[in-house]
Design a protein around this nucleic acid. Sequence first.
DNA 1: CGCTCCATGTGGATGACATTAACATCCGCA
DNA 2: TGCGGATGTTAATGTCATCCACATGGAGCG
Lengths: 207, 207
Amino acid sequence: MERRGAGKRRYHHGALRESLVEEAQRLLAEKGTAGFSMHELARRVGVSAAAPYRHFESRGALLGAVAARGYERLLLMLGESLGEGDDPVHDLKLFGLCYMRFAEESPELFEVMFTDRGRGRADEAQRASFAPMTGLVAQAQQAGGMPASVPAEQIARFLWAAAHGLTLLHLGGGFAAVGLDGTAEALVDSAWSALLAQPPGRGGPAV
Amino acid sequence: MERRGAGKRRYHHGALRESLVEEAQRLLAEKGTAGFSMHELARRVGVSAAAPYRHFESRGALLGAVAARGYERLLLMLGESLGEGDDPVHDLKLFGLCYMRFAEESPELFEVMFTDRGRGRADEAQRASFAPMTGLVAQAQQAGGMPASVPAEQIARFLWAAAHGLTLLHLGGGFAAVGLDGTAEALVDSAWSALLAQPPGRGGPAV
DNA sequence: CGCTCCATGTGGATGACATTAACATCCGCA
DNA sequence: TGCGGATGTTAATGTCATCCACATGGAGCG
């Protein structure tokens, strides 16, 4: 009840929507996706349990907003990590690294982002964070750092999937369960080695 | 013991544990992980809401058992799909394909299997389904179908992650959101192409 | 054959949750 | 100044997970 230190308790919060999304991130990080509840969120923000429904249709919608926020942050991080390099192959690696770091930093947020079956702006955001990869791959192909025999989009999609899978197995303890593990850096490194090491002879379609 | 079709209602179910796990899979497939509830499960099996707790410590434990069942099935499928081939590289591809097919067939089960943060025999099962890959990679390396400059386990881990990521993005609509999509087969194919296509010049560590 | 015991079920709490409905406030605008 | 809708509040409703005390009945013992 002690909102605003000055003792003035306003009936109207004034910036509930925003506060909700922010606090939701914290609550999520604390309790995990499963432990997250509207009731507790409202409690923390100092508002009644029904109030959030004036701003979000449902718990899912609220989480959708949180996910959107997450995508914004991810995009920001990706942008920062890339900016300067002029080696697209290197940038692609940084991309993967950044992806993993983000997930490592806020696993629950990451989960919400990719779990949000309920649609939202999520698709758009996902597209936005994927787009740069295709560009980088194309650059790499032109620079001769990557095989041009496969469409850039296809390679990009594969790289994305690899980063995604690496990330999830890492977070979920999949690698540990199998007796392998390591930091995000080590994982991306090893993935990249596996990827760039060339099959001998010809790259024939053994399949 | 199965349902006495016309007979009397037995106070003791006789095979509750088993029935629960079975029905849970159906319920899960129907309602999804989030929609799954102990109450409804009990209702469907024709038993009181408390009964399941005689057999499982918690909802999580029940789901853990379902996950274990899932791993069994996955292992079976993997075993079947591999059996005959003598080309390890091809087998690896089949492995990925099988993985995706399984997930496509029972997305909720798949989710439960890899979401089960609560531990259980899951680790063991995961290890078991991963193990064959390392072997196949090693074979492929010896046969010259894969670069030997990288440890087999590392490559296997990477392939696993790739398959996992491909699967999740496929299921979650990630690819569709980005304007790319396709069947499991097409996805694995394209991933494999991307993987096997050789970088030109030298495979130097650009990074 | 009858009796007792324990695993397995039953009913009925408890406390949390998501979501809604009906009512209260108050901000901004005519 | 006064009013209407946006934003909050309280008080349900119905579902959930889980627990407790009691019921049942099959298995083994006498």
